[in-house]
């Protein structure tokens, strides 16, 4: 039985030619293929990278004119980040795994606590989490 061919190529001729040329010129070069891990691990890592880069920027700002907001944000970000990275993404935890759900709920609570600190984005009370109508 033949397998059906179902997916189309995303490579263009130029990219293929470039790849072959690169390999022919330097066959000993380490290829860029790299396993990046699962979604949660990679997300955490990328958010860390972004926090480092944005914190650096915020601290730079602090040295300049207005330090108040920058300091506040720089302090708030690590907590917010922690909560966000552990949070289940949308669509996760819907597969009947009670453990996963419990974790997701716990994380949401953490996230709530952390996000309160990030006032600009989520200063308002949470909605859709059993608080409807409450101020």
């Amino acid at each position: 039985m033949e397998k059906k061919i179902k997916k189309t190529t995303i490579l263009t001729g130029t990219v293929i030619a470039g790849a072959l040329l690169t390999f022919s010129v330097n066959a000993d070069a380490r290829p860029s293929t790299q396993a990046l891990g699962n979604g949660a691990e990679l997300r955490t890592e990328i958010i860390d990278l972004n926090v480092v880069s944005s914190s650096a920027k915020l601290y730079e700002l602090e040295c300049g004119e207005k330090s108040g907001t920058a300091t506040k944000k720089a302090e708030a970000k690590p907590d917010a980040k922690k909560a966000k990275t552990s949070e289940a993404k949308c669509g996760e935890g819907k597969c009947g795994e009670s453990g996963k759900k419990a974790d997701a709920k716990k994380d949401t609570k953490d996230a709530k606590a952390a996000k309160t600190e990030k006032k600009e984005k989520t200063s308002e009370a949470k909605c859709g989490e059993g608080k409807c109508g409450a101020e």
């Binding site: 958010i47 972004n50 966000k84 989520t122 949470k126 909605c127 859709g128």
Partner: peptide, 30 residues
């Protein structure tokens, strides 16, 4: 209250789905 509740629902859903973008964009941009 209606507007606040609905808007928060959307914001929560999106910030959980796009945590990196949420982190990278400024509060105003998000």
């Amino acid at each position: 209250q209606y507007r606040r509740l609905f808007r928060n629902n959307i914001n929560n859903s999106l910030s959980q789905a796009y945590p990196i973008s949420f982190e990278v964009l400024s509060d105003e941009e998000w």
